[in-house]
Design a protein around this nucleic acid. Sequence first.
DNA 1: GCCCAGGTGGGTA
DNA 2: TACCCACATGGG
Length: 231
Amino acid sequence: MLYGTDGIAMETTQQDIAQHLLIIYDRLEGHFGDLHWWPADSPFEVIVGTILTQNTAWRNATYAIAQLKGADILSPQGISATPLDTLATLIKSSGCYHVKAKRLAAFVRFLYDEYGGILDSMFAQDQWLLRKKLLQIHGVGNETADSILLYAGAKPIFVVDAYTRRILERHGLLSGRERYNEIQALLMNNLPTRTSLFNQYHALLVNLGKTFCQKNKRCAACPLEGLGDNR
DNA sequence: GCCCAGGTGGGTA
DNA sequence: TACCCACATGGG
């Protein structure tokens, strides 16, 4: 389904949506190039990053990651051996730091309880089963779970975030009322199932969102200019 | 000073 | 189910 500027649905086919999604992808890749996400040195660092960047500018999360590296505790053993208040102090720059310290500890506890602290063991299982388990960890919601699966585990899952919603809505692919799982299904049902594609597509959407498609602002000189509705 | 940022969970009606 | 709110720092 496609939506006009009034939010009213227009008749479309699956093929229209798939084509529209690929055109957006090509435009963005032509503009931004290959982004090679997620920026991190290891899968564990990716996971820590997904928690620290929750509702937070990425820059502030990177300061916190640098603190963890400086303290030499950016590892499952390191996090689990660090008292909560020390952890919270180190990650202060990422905001909501008492909450996030508990969330990091909760993930590491889960990793040890279920997989002996070994990430490879965790990622060895079926992605949808693992997704269910991740969602049971306190502080891991849809977006964090999917970011872990895609960017740390290289599983073919599409990450839906605020940018994804905003951009797809402005381009008439969403009405604005869809839930997380519906948006994810729209993307995954209309794109080839490939980790590299999902990785790059989401990275492109985030880059577009940061540079052109900001909240409450118009898309001046947007790389998607002229593609249907550009609200 | 105000708004926003690569969310999540708990509470209320 | 659908909102509201707390969590909280740093940059524009």
